[in-house]
């Protein structure tokens, strides 16, 4: 899940080297914190949150498979 979010975010931003994901793991849920370069925040959010919504929905598919709940937070 972590690797996937990293790969996808890196493909979208202008500064892939600044992409970092940290994981806060609970019993039934996982929080993925996505760090990007401040210049790229708009990129990962997208118009009306389109991109972050797409990322969340893909991560959710993986989480469902792993039997967990996942949340994606963008950290600035």
């Amino acid at each position: 899940m972590k690797e996937l979010l990293e790969t996808l975010a890196k493909a979208i931003v202008d500064n892939p080297d600044d992409v970092k994901v940290t994981v806060v793991e609970g019993d039934t849920s996982v929080i993925l914190q996505l760090y990007v370069n401040p210049d790229d925040i708009g990129k990962v959010i997208g118009k009306q949150g389109r991109i972050v919504k797409a990322l969340r929905s893909l991560i959710k598919a993986v989480a469902v498979k792993e039997g967990k709940k996942a949340m994606v937070e963008i950290i600035d």
Binding site: A11, G46, A54, L55, L58
Partner: peptide, 10 residues
């Protein structure tokens, strides 16, 4: 759709 969005954006 989400997959398509990410691919198109990338």
């Amino acid at each position: 759709s989400a997959l398509q969005t990410v691919v198109t954006t990338a």
